[in-house]
């Protein structure tokens, strides 16, 4: 058994096992996940792994608690999945909320609500690859440490790749900056140009309120070798429990795909111009999403 199944996916496994004896929504959800994950297009070898280490059996266990969060905790309202083109696509989203529930919710949306179900493969921080258990979980559920070559390979293979170009600067921003897009990295645009991949802007409304940041102690972060050390209403005061998000409602919108053309090795200025276009689209989508919601929680 993988360590990762032992520890991180234990909750999922319990639910999975328990569901065999349960009737009602748990077993329905398990059946739904089984059916949908099986339909995700993937090139698996005889041992059930794809070239990047994705394993559907692990994903099924992992996605069950995530699906619970998606349906019953964040009660996600997702729109625009019909905008997801077939084959290679790059999802670009806004990052917030101290812990990357936003990535997980986009992942759940693509599995539970897209037709056919898709695996959105996250491009993670380098730091994540050095973490025990989490590094395995990341691989088995289809994500990877975000390097250019890995992104190119996945897209050329027709995968759906998800990136948050703000990185930790977005995720761990303070509440005073809520819904203000931070500086975007340029890597994703070069990736898109190189592989001729349509970009789908994904706006996520709700994540900013799930765990508002009060401060970010960069000194402590450096000391612990972490990218950031956020202070929130509950973290670190309640320990790991303090990472628990508030039950806000998520509104996720997949915008129409945009195909950029140009030289992937162009000057930063030129690439920046294209990145700004995406950023503007995303900002508009965010503003519209915020205007349309009735309240943060409902």
């Amino acid at each position: 058994m993988n360590d990762v199944i032992d520890l991180l996916a234990r909750l999922g496994e319990r639910l999975h096992d328990a569901s065999t004896g349960l009737t009602g929504f748990v077993s329905d959800l398990v059946a739904e996940i089984d059916e949908k994950v099986d339909r995700i297009p993937a090139e698996l070898n005889e041992y059930g792994y794809d070239p990047w280490g994705y394993n559907p059996a692990v994903l099924k266990r992992f996605i069950l608690p995530v699906a619970f969060l998606y349906r019953y905790y964040f009660r996600c309202r997702t729109r625009g999945l019909e905008n997801l083109p077939e084959g290679r696509v790059l999802l670009i989203g806004n990052h917030a909320g101290q812990v990357a529930f936003d990535g997980l919710m986009v992942m759940a949306a693509c599995i539970l609500e897209a037709e056919p179900p898709r695996l959105s493969r996250g491009m993670g921080e380098y730091w994540l690859g050095t973490l025990p258990f989490l590094s395995i979980l990341m691989d088995r559920t289809g994500s990877a440490v975000g390097t250019r070559q890995t992104g190119v390979d996945m897209l050329e293979h027709g995968e759906c790749v998800m990136a948050f170009p703000e990185g930790v600067h977005g995720m761990n921003k303070l509440y005073s900056d809520a819904y203000k897009l931070m500086e975007f990295g340029l890597g994703f645009m070069r990736l898109g140009l190189q592989t001729n991949t349509p970009i789908v802007p994904v706006s996520i409304v709700g994540s900013e309120e799930q765990n508002p940041g009060i401060a970010n102690l960069k000194g402590i972060a450096r000391l612990l070798g972490m990218p950031s050390f956020p202070i929130t209403l509950t973290f670190p005061w309640l320990g790991p429990l303090g990472m628990m998000p508030l039950p806000v409602r998520y509104h996720i919108e997949f915008g129409p795909p945009i195909l950029f053309e140009g030289d992937p090795e162009d000057e930063d200025d030129v690439i920046q111009g294209k990145v700004d276009e995406i950023k503007a689209v995303l900002q508009r989508q965010l503003t519209k999403g915020r205007e349309n919601r009735r309240s943060v929680f409902f």
Partner: peptide
């Protein structure tokens, strides 16, 4: 390395 590309080519 943790941040290796998954399938490195000869230029790596």
């Amino acid at each position: 390395l943790a941040n290796n590309a998954r399938y490195m080519n000869e230029e790596h």
